[in-house]
Design a protein around this nucleic acid. Structure first.
Lengths: 201, 201, 201, 201
DNA sequence: GATGAATGAGAATTCATTCAT
DNA sequence: TATGAATGAATTCTCATTCAT
């Protein structure tokens, strides 16, 4: 018997490149057609690979979608977390989160925009492993912030939900405008969460 | 050829009844399977009609989905609008909106819950004609409220998006809990929008 | 609600005709290609129906194969049984069985010949519900015949197996010859089973 | 690129060993899955070789199947032949053949049992070059035995078919029983062929 | 020779939609 | 208008085989 010691060679490079090619094609096609309308054929047609090759890398369009989302989430999660960890007060916690998120959305439009294409009837929201982990992380950070007195004693699940809802919904609205202004979006969301709508005395 | 023998006591299904039967079946099936996984066959199988009959009423599952959402939106829209019109101050505007919405969600779980079934990866959000009209209505009301001084001078699009995002996201969270407590959800959202998180002096 | 009383009409006729067309095509294609090499596409291509129509009648080629065998077995089983029931002595029991079987085989070559086509490597033997039932029936009749003293006290399972093996194997050999002579085949098998090879004193 | 580091104590697989490994894997997989359902991938997966390697040894699963059967036939053929050559009378000819065959079957169950797995519908019978040669050999020996007066003047083709049919069919029945009793099977078959069913005076 | 990823033809199957009854 | 079988395009997925490494 032989022990195989992998040395990165052409084969391994091709494998990585193919995987990336499929993910890139999927990103493009999902953005164009929406998740529901996209078929595996559409994705593979957008690469120069053979149809069977898709199945060497992913079992289904669901799986490639997840990989796609995981990639995105892995890019944004550490940045969001770093902002929150660094936060010394409630202003930094809230403002840092929204600024980072809207900046990311503005950069990475395609990732965020996966959808609202199915005859304009549906909106599909990301929720891969990594995205869910990101939500979870936010909730944990909120709990910690509440315990440390950084945030007031509020229901952390609801607060997480509120931040997520506002981030995604305002994110969409922001992208619909020209020019895309993440600063303005972040300011709005931050002010809402810090001060609410009622004028302070 | 089949001979149809009417059975007394069960009246013939009228056109309206057939339409309703299809919508009801669709509501049930969408809730079970999610939109993407549902086929026209699934819907028609859940009625006692024949497959061809579906096409006398709807062109596609998209169309029946829209009709379904429209029905829902038509139930909730007037109530939301009435709340906002009746509002004499910012507290009533915000609290009325959220209370009404979460009450509706708690009642009509199936309608709201259409989905998150697609392999648990996706969340599908309603956005039929009527739902969009409802969003539009909210934005109009917000504009009017801003002009009349009821609400502070804020970007109405962003505010609409924020309310919608919070309503849907907290709505989901609320439904995930036992018992479902629309009052608590409304209080949380209302307080957030009125006061923000920062303690008032 | 209506009660549907079927009256044989054009629709029902077409259904029966289509089912028969598929079975006939399958019989032809199995005989040509053998079971293993045959695809559903091959079968449907041999009809003038559309590919999807196949699935209105059968779930797979296995299912149509079974239907095919059942048809055959249903034709031959009652005749075999009648011969055995009528038998007044061992000669009639054995001779009746083989004569009837080889006559049937000679008539219905295609049914019997399903196979030995896969590069001449394999022989596929029928064993649908009905064929198995036919074997079972033979065993039961043998048991009865043993109990009534018509047949000597032998292991009925082995005797069944022996008759089946000889019937099928000699059947094949008979078909390979020109002219096909069921009489001769039956005489050979009958004599073997009645007298054995050892010359009687 | 991979670097192959030889591990001492485990010798390199030679060409012969690889061929044997593939045949052994095929024997196992055919017995489990049946011939029709088995794929080349299944076979190669049951070895520790790579898929491409299969094609250095065999062109298709048909070819490996033949090789498999040839191996079996090469084991049993000489023994059968020896029995028949040694036979000094009809009793020895018949009894020797069946005893040897059923002993072999009892030993080498897997080889004989290749199949009846295809949804329980089919029985697949071996018929490789070597197996056919074995049948041929039997026929030749029968002819010789007829000419020498050892066997009565009967149609040698039919007699060959009858022996083959009985051997295989009773072989299956024997394997289905517990305990497997080749002696009893041989006795039954021998008595049938020697004496027939009709009581001798 | 061995490897195992890429290939792409082709199989099974589904399903929206049509249309004769 | 209701029915439900027929249609066939489209999709998913498998697999034997090739070939660069």
């Amino acid at each position: 018997m032989n022990v195989r010691v992998p040395v990165p060679g052409k084969r391994e490079q091709t494998k990585v490149a193919n995987r990336e090619a499929i993910i890139a094609a999927a990103r493009k096609v999902f953005a164009e057609l929406g998740f529901g309308a996209t078929t595996v054929r559409d994705i593979i047609r957008a690469t120069d690979l053979a149809s069977g090759t898709f199945y060497n890398y992913f079992k289904s369009k669901e799986e490639v979608f997840e990989a796609l989302q995981d990639e995105s989430a892995l890019r944004i999660r550490p940045r969001l977390r770093a902002e929150r960890v660094r936060a010394r007060n409630i202003e930094e916690f809230i403002a840092g989160t929204f600024e980072t998120f809207f900046d990311y959305v503005a950069q990475d439009r395609a990732d965020f925009h996966v959808a609202r294409k199915n005859t304009d009837i549906l909106r599909v929201r990301m929720a891969s492993q990594q995205v869910i982990a990101g939500f979870e992380e936010l909730r944990e950070d909120i709990k910690v912030a509440v315990d440390s007195g950084l945030l007031p004693r509020l229901d952390p699940d609801f607060l997480t939900a509120a931040m997520v809802g506002v981030a995604f919904e305002i994110g969409e609205m922001m992208l619909a405008r020209d020019p895309v202004d993440p600063k303005a979006a972040a300011e709005f969301a931050t002010s809402l969460f810090l001060n609410g709508l009622r004028p302070r005395p």
